[in-house]
Design a protein around this nucleic acid. Structure first.
Length: 562
RNA sequence: UGGGGUGUAGCCAAGUUGGUAAGGCAGCGGGUUUUGGUCCCGCCAUCCGUGGGUUCAAGUCCUACCACCCCAGCCA
């Protein structure tokens, strides 16, 4: 009996199996305690989201706990800005951590453990240079050789280590190493470095320390000190597990110690999920910051308009396994659309306006139509939209010579102006260059509200905006933009929006407009779910915007016709 | 040439002690529809990296091989 039994929607995975096993054997008295341990050296991205959802999700599922721990053992890379951003992003995803910790809070304890190791004869101070250590480590196929300093006495090691801490030695002149086996087939076990001398101000401990513990020494002990039961990390740490176990088993201080479990990190098509590359984009100002809507960071997609629920759903759907894989970005978009479809109010907007004049509509008349915000959910309410003789429609919604399967406006054809009237195109007006500048129509007064008593159907339904009442909003749309190639090439659009729709759109638009840079995430009913700068997701390859469904569909129709 | 991992459809991914290949995304076909959206229905692995073997029966067991990923930071 376990928590997964009550829902058949929970996908089984090897980590859940391990937890079930551990619960069955009462390994931790039934406890489940995980942790999400980022190094605060950058912003969180979708790859981290997978880990966050896994760790926090498992804790929720098994009524356990999950800590947020900052793995801040390398002061030269870490900053307070990053810890603030990380806390915000985890919260935004909707998770609450049981405790917040910092590896740096354990520096004293870790130091004591190191001295204990020295006393046990399991660690020694090595005076060799980094270069010497590297060359004597051997290669993948040949054993390394022992350091000439490997057999120092515990007393000498202790003295040297204390002097390292006291700051008596220059950076890089000495390290503390575990005494394990220089011929171990696992490279990680060839007397790994435990402490290095590094005079760098730490974002929290400032200049208190000049020696800092390495990941392999810190991580397992931090887990153990927090009574973590399941230490979940990515595949590249598989080789480190042996050392993780060695440290905890050698110290013998933790009867109920944690065990490490590795899973494959997330790869997404068209998307860069490498902190190294992302930080490069930011530093080279290829993007306007970590939260640029084009970035695959949590803060970037937040600005892009992705709901956190969608990200969590995505993380659940991709599963957890040990096989390296690349998830199709379309799955993420599907999750986003699914959320947005239910929650987004629908409004009308025109991005590329074409004037439409209703010849038989009274000159100064203005009608108001009550239009629902959501076609399937009345709880979204409705708003009043003004209608008049002169309107704007989307340029793409008219074709003078429509191909087959084009259902919208064309000469002589009748279509519906959404929630307003049926109109029939009577005339096309062009300028001297042949460009269509205006469409003339007649309307049928008996079709008020957008339906006909005689039951006649129209194939197309168009968005419209009253020219008299329209508000123009400057928006910036990133379209088919590839960061690597041309970061500044964004297209500016003037969108015409019904005044009543403005408040809806502004809610999405404002953060972006305020920064005068970002894309926007709003819901133009006609264009699909959100246009935002959804066209782009830090692409490595050209990508067609899958979320602007209208364009997509149209492209498909064109393709079919050859 | 060492060690640690992984291989099920275009992409993810279930598959518990061997019993006759879930589900999702994408795609295709059809229906509903005041969004070319949503929703609904149908189709989409004679086969589980490959070759042998055990068995009445193998994705699941044995064996050999192949492919890909990770490891030689005083990064995490």
């Amino acid at each position: 009996m376990n928590q997964t039994d009550d829902t058949n929607t929970v996908k089984q995975n090897f980590i859940r199996l391990r937890i079930n096993e551990d619960k069955a054997t009462q390994k931790y008295e039934g406890r489940v305690h995980t942790r999400f341990p980022p190094e605060p050296n950058g912003y969180l991205h979708l790859g981290h989201a997978k880990s966050i959802c896994l760790n926090f999700g498992l804790a929720e599922e098994y009524l356990g706990k999950c800590n947020l721990r900052f793995d801040d053992t390398n002061p030269s890379k870490e900053e307070q800005e990053y810890v603030d951003a990380i806390r915000k992003d985890v919260s935004w995803l909707g998770f609450h951590w049981h405790e917040e910790h910092y590896a740096s809070d354990y520096f004293e304890k870790l130091y004591a453990f190191a001295e204990k190791l020295i006393l046990m004869g399991k660690a020694y101070v090595d005076d060799q240079s980094a270069e010497e250590i590297r060359t004597t480590r051997g290669t993948l196929t040949s054993a390394g050789s022992n350091s000439p300093f490997r057999e120092r006495s515990s007393a000498e090691n202790l003295d040297l280590f204390r002097r390292m801490k006291a700051g008596e030695f220059e950076d890089g002149t000495r390290v503390l190493r575990a005494k394990i086996d220089m011929s171990a087939p696992n490279m990680v076990m060839r007397d790994p470095t435990l402490y290095r001398i590094k005079r760098a101000s730490h974002h929290r401990t400032k200049d208190t320390w000049c020696i800092y513990p390495m990941y392999d020494f810190t991580h397992c002990l931090s887990d153990a000190l927090e009574n973590i039961t399941h230490s979940i990390c990515t595949l590249e740490f598989e080789n480190n597990r042996e050392l993780y176990d060695w440290v905890l088993d050698t110290l013998e201080d933790f009867p109920q110690r944690p065990y490490q479990h590795e899973f494959a990190r997330l790869n997404l098509t068209y998307t860069i999920l490498s902190k190294r590359k992302l930080i490069q984009l930011v530093e080279e100002k290829q993007v306007c910051g970590w939260d640029d809507p084009r970035m695959p960071t949590i803060s970037g997609i937040r600005r892009r308009g992705y709901p956190p629920e969608a990200v969590r759903d995505f993380c659940e759907r991709i599963g957890v396994a040990k096989a390296n894989s690349t998830v199709d970005f379309a799955l993420l978009e599907h999750c986003v659309r699914e959320q947005l479809n239910a929650s987004s109010p629908r409004v009308m907007g025109v991005l590329n306006p074409l004037k439409l004049i209703i010849e038989n509509y009274p000159e100064n008349q203005v009608e108001e139509f009550d239009m629902p915000y959501h076609p399937e959910d009345e709880s979204h309410g409705s708003r009043i939209v003004p209608f008049s003789k002169e309107l704007y429609i989307e340029r793409e919604d008219f074709m003078e010579e429509p191909p087959k399967k084009f259902f919208r406006l064309a000469p002589g054809r009748e279509v519906r102006l959404r929630y307003a009237y049926y109109v029939t195109c009577t005339e096309v007006i062009k300028d001297s260059t042949g460009k269509i500048v205006e469409i003339r129509c007649t309307y049928d007064p008996k079709t008020k509200g957008g339906w006909s008593e005689d039951g006649r159907k129209v194939k197309g339904t168009l968005h419209w905006v009253s020219a008299l009442h329209a508000i123009q909003a400057e928006v910036r749309l990133y379209d088919k933009l590839f960061i690597e190639e041309n970061p500044s090439k964004a297209e500016d659009f003037t969108a015409c929006i019904n005044p009543e729709s403005v408040k809806i759109i502004k809610a999405f638009l404002e953060p972006a407009l305020a920064q005068a840079q970002a894309g926007y995430a709003c819901q133009f009913e006609r264009l699909g779910y959100f246009i935002a700068d959804a066209a782009d997701h830090t692409s490595e390859k050209p990508v067609f915007n899958r979320t602007a469904t209208l364009r997509d569909t149209w492209a498909k129709i064109n393709k079919k016709q050859g």
